[in-house]
Each structure stands twice: as C-alpha cells, then as structure tokens.
Amino acid sequence: MANLSAVSVFILQGFSTVPALQLMSTVVFLLIYLASVLGNVSIMIAVTLDPHLNTPMYFFIKHLSLVDLCSTSTTLPRALVATMADTKEISLPACASQLFAFVCFGSLECFLITSMAFDRCLAIYRPLTYGVTMSSQTCVSLVVVAWVSGLLFSTFHMVNTFSLPFCGPNTIDHFFCDIPPLMRLACGNTQDHEAAGFIVSGCVIMSCFALTCLSYVLIVYTVVHIRSAAGRWKAFSTCSSHLATVILFYGTGSSAYMQPTAHYSPLQGRMAAIFYSILTPTLNPLIYSLRNKDMKAALRKFYPQVPC
C-alpha cells in the first residue's frame, strides 16, 4: 500500500476551518464524548449485572452500546487531542487503521439494528415460538455473524480506498479519515473504486434496510389486529426505541455514503459525520433508557442519587 502512494502523512483539517470555532467545538465535543462514554458504559454494566435484563432484546442493546462506544472512541479522542495539541498529522497506516475501525463499527451497528428488528418482529409476530427461536445460541450467532460481516466489509473499503495513489495535496478536509474526503485526494482514476464501493455499500445497506422494513411491516400487521388499544400500545412501545435508532442511523449515515464523490461537499460531509459518528452513538443510550422502565430501574441501582 505504501508503494502505491507518494503521500506518507495526511493532515486532518479538524472540526472547523474557522480558528475561532476550534476551541469552542473542542470543548463541546469533549463533553459529548464523556456523555457517550458514561451512557454506553452504564448500559453495558446494567445489562450485564441485572438479571431482569437477561433477555435477547437487552443482549443486543448491550452489544450496540459496545459498538457505539468503540465507534466514538475511534474518531473523537484523536481529533480532540490533535486540536488541543495542534498536531493534526496522521500517518498513512494510522489513517488506514482509523478508516478500517470506523467502517467496521458503523457496519456492525447496521447489522445489529437489523438483528434487533428481527428480534422485535419475532416477539410480536410469533410470540409463542419466540423463546425457542431466539435462544441464547441464536443471539450469539447473530452477533458473531455481525462481527464477521463488519470485518469483511471494512477490509474491502480499506483496500478499495488505500489501493489508490495519493500524490498530494495531503490535507483531509475532515476531522477523521473517512472514505469520501480521501477519495477526493486520490490522484488516480477513482471511478472504478468509487463504483465498487457504492455497489457494495448499497447492497449491504439496502439489504439491511429492506429486512428491517419487512420486520416492521409484520409488526404493524400484527399490532393493527390486536383488539385492545392497551395491547396495541404495549406491543408498539417495545419497538419505539429501536425505531428511533433506525431513523437516526439510516437518516444520517446513508446521506453521507450513498452519493457520488463528485457531489461531496466538505462542509456537508463534516456536518453529516457529526450526526452519524458522534450524536447518534451518544443519543442511543438515552433512547433505550428514557422510556424503558426496566432499564431505568437497573440504572437507578448504580446511580441511586440521580433521578431516572
């Protein structure tokens, strides 16, 4: 990979190109990162230690929190340190590793969200066989498949991106090594690489999205046939948190990756990245705890002085 590139070091632009906004954005994103760490770690501890949360739904939520924690830790700490220490250089291998990790955790979230939709669908559409179908072995298998698929997906994108020659300039107009801004820096013909990445990403994202939509079609079909209003509300309330996560994930991430590089806007890309790489992983713990009585009860055991 190094032999194909005349650039050995990249320079990350940071959160903003306006110097006056750098310090303010650093403070804001530091607080957001601390909130993300606290929220996701709390969810993982609560699900692990509370026996009442020993169900498939919370098993997936725990792994989603782990992925969210790893995702934000892949990009934010380095960006914060680089801004505060004014050391924005990143070596080519480090840049490739960061891209690999970020794409891996992003795709993992996509696969986990799909598994969670399948879980909710079975719980509502086939409640009598739910306990047998969603056994602990099935849950572990779905998580393992998600990890293997995420590793393969990120390996493809890392190779597809860094097999291109980079001859300069070497300034990445972003706060981390992401695919669209790197493609813009390549000095070779990127059309084939861009097309390959678009096709693979499109197939994976659309397949997961289609399976998620199918799950919700079955859920809605079942809910509307429930006679009592209380029963309909109870069934739908178990999906509301997951539905909010689906909207956040696909609404922000797809807008950044499902468009040609020629139409990529650095400012728009940076703003979209803030949503899908920072805000979404930070909001997920709130989404899964604010309207969940069992989760709030578990968290209250660890933070008795904090109202939940």
Rank of each mutant, 00 (worst) to 15 (best):
L4H: 14
S5D: 15
A6Q: 13
F10S: 11
L12Y: 02
L12G: 00
Q13E: 09
V18S: 08
V18A: 11
P19I: 02
Q22H: 06
L23E: 07
L23N: 10
M24H: 07
M24K: 11
S25W: 06
S25T: 03
V28M: 07
V28Y: 06
F29C: 06
F29N: 06
I32M: 07
I32C: 02
Y33T: 02
V37P: 01
N40M: 12
N40P: 10
N40T: 05
V41L: 06
I43E: 08
M44Y: 12
T48E: 06
D50W: 00
H52I: 01
H52M: 03
L53C: 01
N54S: 12
M57R: 12
M57I: 02
F59S: 09
I61V: 07
I61E: 04
K62I: 08
K62A: 10
H63E: 03
L64I: 07
L66K: 04
V67F: 00
V67C: 03
D68W: 01
L69N: 06
L69Q: 05
L69D: 05
C70S: 12
S73W: 06
S73N: 03
T75P: 00
T75Q: 02
T75W: 05
P77T: 08
P77S: 11
A79Q: 00
L80Q: 14
V81K: 00
M84Q: 04
M84L: 13
T87N: 12
T87H: 10
K88Q: 10
E89M: 06
I90Q: 15
S91W: 13
S91V: 09
L92M: 01
C95K: 02
C95H: 03
A96T: 09
S97A: 12
Q98Y: 12
Q98R: 05
Q98E: 15
Q98S: 09
L99H: 14
F100G: 10
F100M: 04
F100S: 14
F102K: 11
F102E: 05
F102D: 08
V103Q: 04
V103K: 03
F105R: 00
F105M: 15
G106V: 11
G106M: 06
S107F: 14
L108P: 00
L108K: 00
E109A: 07
E109Q: 11
C110R: 02
F111R: 09
L112A: 07
S115M: 06
A117C: 11
R120F: 07
R120V: 10
C121E: 15
A123G: 01
R126K: 14
P127R: 15
T129N: 12
G131V: 14
T133C: 07
M134F: 08
S136T: 07
S136L: 13
